[in-house]
Design a protein around this nucleic acid. Structure first.
Lengths: 134, 134
DNA sequence: ATAAACCCTATAGTTAACTCTAGGTCAAGC
DNA sequence: GCTTGACCTAGAGTTAACTATAGGGTTTAT
């Protein structure tokens, strides 16, 4: 089964603009074309795009992702780099989770703060109070 | 105890450029000035900046954060909005954690993929194999 | 008293990641 | 055979969040 660019955009919740932009940035050298130039995506291309989206969601910039794609094209000689990169990404995600935990702490605290303030009708109950001072 | 802009920058791991930019965007209307215009940060200003950093790390854009700061200036009449906003942020962070879990799944999978490929010396062992096809 | 090290504003420049427009090709349906 | 709609490229425009520069004012140490 092959897919057009708009089908892939829909599947991955991206725009066709974005997909063409990724292609221009060298993130999709594997996508085939019809004789007249129209992109034809196969299943494995969509899987690769999912990996790209995954890397993006770790905060990796597109230029770094391109490096990875280039390594993939280079074959087995780059296995170590690619492994190292994923280990690095794992660490990055773990750090993000840790940061979100801290963020959540403060947010929960603020939720409590406003809940009690609302009940009292005023923020003043938190003046000089432990809950107001983080 | 009062702090200069560069001290605050150091404390919060931001640049003075960033702090002045935040001020220009209306995120710090509470910071006092000396007669000649130099900013003087007090402890509570730093706490407020920590809340701003917290909101930023939930992915909230600066214009939205400004709305919150404005609500703070408006006093008790905006307690409900502020409470709702933090509930919304809580949901946003929970969604981010959920997404990171999915991301981590794929990354762990890829770590395994490359680990075994490295051991074998080639990616080919994953051709037509469950581990290669996500 | 003068240079270094801060501070300030206003404004210009940068970067990443899109997002859109203009101008064109091509296949399908009426 | 012509219109409609999906595709294409090249390149311009946008947006957010900084980041830097120019030009100028204080305070501090020698």
């Amino acid at each position: 089964m092959k897919y057009s660019i708009s089908e892939v955009a829909q599947k991955l919740n991206l725009t066709v603009y974005t997909l063409r932009y990724y292609d221009k940035e060298g993130l999709m050298p594997f996508v085939e074309r019809t004789p007249n130039g129209t992109r034809l995506f196969k299943e494995s291309d969509i899987d690769a795009l999912k990996v790209i989206e995954c890397l993006k969601s770790t905060g990796m910039p597109i230029k770094e992702i391109k490096k990875f794609i280039d390594w993939c094209s280079d074959g087995d000689s780059t296995l170590q780099q690619r492994y190292d990169m994923f280990l690095e990404r794992k660490a990055a995600v773990e750090a993000q989770v840790e940061e979100l935990k801290q963020t959540m702490k403060l947010i929960d605290h603020k939720c409590e703060y406003y809940k009690t303030a609302l009940k009292a009708g005023t923020e003043n109950i938190h003046k000089d109070n432990k809950i107001g001072n983080i």
